[in-house]
Write a protein that binds this DNA or RNA. Structure first.
Lengths: 129, 129
DNA sequence: TCAAGTGTACTAATACTCGTAGTACACTCA
DNA sequence: TGAGTGTACTACGAGTATTAGTACACTTGA
């Protein structure tokens, strides 16, 4: 499904969180779609189920998925992912990165073009109707 | 100068890197301005000089500062910070965050407005002339 | 009803990272 | 030449990540 960088300083469970989030945002994983079980994914990636569970718990905390004991873990419908605390931290981080990009020579026009390029590959928001 | 969150999961040296970078980008710290010495800042922040040195080394690796043995550490002139490897990783991270923001309901127009708001508070780039 | 699946949580062990304390060397400059 | 500067190293303790192992609660289909 995806590959992990075992030598990265970034913890394995965080890499999982990042990759699954990308799949949800780009709607490769669709709302209410079931995720692989923690034991299945653990077997596929040759890592411990507890590590998968840790990633899934983080995604649930951030509102991206929901889990049902005995049934599995599923992608949250996008209207349920609205998470104002999360949004505040994303915006804060975005400001830093946008400033850094412009400092490094990227023109505002280029960033605006980037936004338009990404617009069509994102699910959720309010342009799904 | 700034405050650190000793209880954060983010390592102290990384918090330093982030804050100093923000000061450089917003030109609170100006090109060729000297940074506090590692011993001075260590004293001010009540942390170990090796921790400061680690942050300064990271900033130097990323191209934001330069150091001279016996003289000190200085902000790199912005024309020297152009670092295409760094830029590539910033753009990659930006794409992820922009997608996430739109997924969470932020309209492209709002992001574009954010860019315009930030434009005036960034040094470097090519609008300094 | 039960077996196979699911999520969830806990303990304990190991390895890694972070921050510290301490120390020492090379350089600059007034 | 002394006081400042950066730089680098060892060793130690604390915290985190990952693992192995185990066990419990739930779901569902045969």
């Amino acid at each position: 499904m995806f590959e992990l960088d075992m030598r990265s300083r970034q913890p394995i469970y965080e890499q999982l969180v990042d990759k699954l989030k990308e799949l949800i945002i780009s709607e490769v994983l669709k709302p209410d779609e079931q995720l692989p079980s923690v034991r299945t994914l653990a077997g596929q990636l040759t890592i411990n189920p507890n590590t998968i569970q840790k990633a899934y718990r983080e995604l649930e905390t951030q509102g991206y998925i929901y889990s049902v004991k005995g049934k599995g873990s599923f992608v949250n419908p996008t209207s349920l992912v609205k998470n104002s605390e999360k949004l505040v931290s994303v915006i804060k981080e975005l400001k830093k990165l946008l400033s850094e990009a412009m400092y490094l020579g990227v023109k505002p026009e280029e960033l605006i073009e980037l936004i338009h390029d990404l617009e069509s590959s994102v699910g959720g928001g309010e342009n799904d109707d």
